[in-house]
């Protein structure tokens, strides 16, 4: 117990007395964590925005008046089999009318023409899917000869290019994001490893002295690991502070400009995921700090 207390204390004391060395190492780690953090915020934001976008893209299938109710319900149940399809909503002529009347943009003259007695609005199915890939499935089904003669039009064809574009962008953003994050984490590990190694080479004399005075291995090494942990901890506080400040500042700058809407989307995403981002950064920070110290110790403290 007394040994544990002393080893812990030695780690803390070393960290604070090493001054510039601790500061530089902490700053380099902060930069690494900052990069990871910014990528996390951006990745979460694009993800969220893309999901919102996906929810807005739905397929509306309009039926000819000749289509029977049974046929419409059969198509609906056919589509519902797929678990990926989130919802299929049947909109009857009456519903369509209600919706139409509720639209503020419709002119009064047009509104008067469309009445319950003479309703030109088609019955339709409104399909929402979790995944953009499902849209192909939907289009295949509605093109089947059983259904196609009764279908007036579907918004699928109008949205097809849009959907494909979104699909491609999503894939691109995901791949580039993951790739860059991995790259930056690797760079961070190498930079920190090197810094800690230099610190150890610089202090190899100290390690030697401790051994000659009769310090056991744990007494020599664990304080270095604690120092490594502290680098990670302080780097976390610094980088999280910078990101937090950055978000607040950009909100401030963006207000009143075209970016205001954009920031209004980003900020809540940041707050909602604050804990998650912190957790990931704690894991990465601790891992880099302790891991790099451990690796350097194994190499240089024989």
């Amino acid at each position: 117990m007394i040994r544990f207390k002393r080893i812990l204390k030695a780690g803390f004391v070393n960290f604070f007395r090493n001054g510039w060395l601790s500061v530089t190492t902490t700053l380099i780690m902060s930069l690494a964590l900052l990069t990871v953090g910014i990528f996390l915020v951006l990745a979460l934001s694009t993800n969220k925005i893309v999901h919102e976008l996906k929810d807005k893209v739905d397929i509306v299938v309009n039926f000819k008046d000749s289509a029977s109710e049974a046929l419409i319900y059969q198509l609906k149940s056919d589509l519902m089999i797929r678990p990926e399809i989130k919802s299929v909503q049947y909109i009857s002529k009456e519903d369509a009318l209600k919706e139409f009347k509720a639209r503020a943009s419709v002119k009064q003259e047009v509104r008067d023409i469309v009445t319950a007695e003479d309703n030109p609005l088609p019955r339709s199915l409104r399909i929402q899917s979790v995944d953009l890939k499902e849209y192909d499935y939907v289009s295949n089904i509605i093109k089947k000869p059983t259904y196609s003669p009764y279908i007036d039009s579907s918004s699928y064809d109008d949205n097809k290019t849009l959907i494909e574009n979104i699909n491609q962008s999503v894939r691109f953003v995901e791949r580039v994001g993951i790739g860059l994050s991995v790259l930056f984490i690797l760079i961070a590990i190498m930079v920190v490893f090197n810094t800690v190694r230099l610190a150890l080479v610089f202090r190899s004399r100290e390690i030697e002295i401790m051994r000659l005075v009769g310090a056991s291995e744990s007494f020599v090494k664990i304080p270095f690991l604690i120092e490594g942990f502290l680098y990670g901890l302080f780097a976390l506080i610094v980088s999280q502070g910078v990101i937090f400040g950055g978000v607040l500042l950009s909100e401030e700058i963006a207000s009143g400009t075209v970016f205001e809407k954009f920031m209004q989307r980003i900020t809540p995403i940041f707050y909602e995921n604050f804990l998650l981002i912190t957790l990931i950064m704690v894991i990465i920070g601790t891992f880099i700090g302790i891991g790099a110290s451990y690796l350097s110790l194994r190499r240089h403290a024989k």
């Binding site: 007394i2 009769g214 007494f219």
Partner: peptide, 9 residues
């Protein structure tokens, strides 16, 4: 330090 490594109180 020489005493700390010997776990003296």
């Amino acid at each position: 330090f020489a005493l700390e490594v010997c776990d003296l109180p």
